[in-house]
Amino acid sequence: MSSATLSQEHADSDLPPSEPWSNIAEETEAASFGMWLFLGTEVLFFGGLFLSYTIARFLYPQDFLEAARHTDIYLGATNTIVLLTSSLTMVVAVRGADLGARRLVWICLAATAALGALFLTIKGFEYWEDIREHLVPGRGFAVQGFGATLFFSLYWIMTSVHAVHLTVGVILIARLAWLMRSEPLRLPDLPVYGLYWHFVDTVWIFLFPLLYLAGRA
């Protein structure tokens, strides 16, 4: 990986490697490896939700898809654009770390966190709207049929689990951005944060068609 040689040369990487690693390149490789393993576990975590979605849709196809038409596609699409843009800023941040451009790094990290926070705000507004339209299964649920109940049950669960992951990401990235303003670059951190953020984005890329585009042929 070219980042290894670059990082070893750069003056900013004065921070010593953590135990038990003997150099930054090793630690970066290890950190990325560890994050890939963690993302593997996350695939299985979300996988259980996607399995439940598939089964519910198979059991009650008509009602399920009919209910899917009640999601707010405009807010969903806007959020998709917001999140994809945040992945762009994250990519720039990671590349900037390779090049030692500390100012670029913390600005892009801050932008990523801000866009993530924007996503959450829009999502929060969307939730408020959903509640007002009685799209929460239970008493007063607005849509008929078992398929609809299951669709919205899964909608709330899947989007909240995704939102929790996003929130954790926003907080950690914002923290890193704050630290990067004054401290030397912690090189092993950037690819790790990047991988996590791209994963959260990828999950949304699956959620969006399943929850917003389904039933809207």
Partner: peptide, 17 residues
């Protein structure tokens, strides 16, 4: 219990649950 789940071809989903 869930008439909308199994609507026969050619009929409207009008049966109440």
């Amino acid at each position: 219990l869930e008439p909308r789940k199994n609507v026969p071809a050619g009929y409207d989903p009008k049966m109440p649950s």
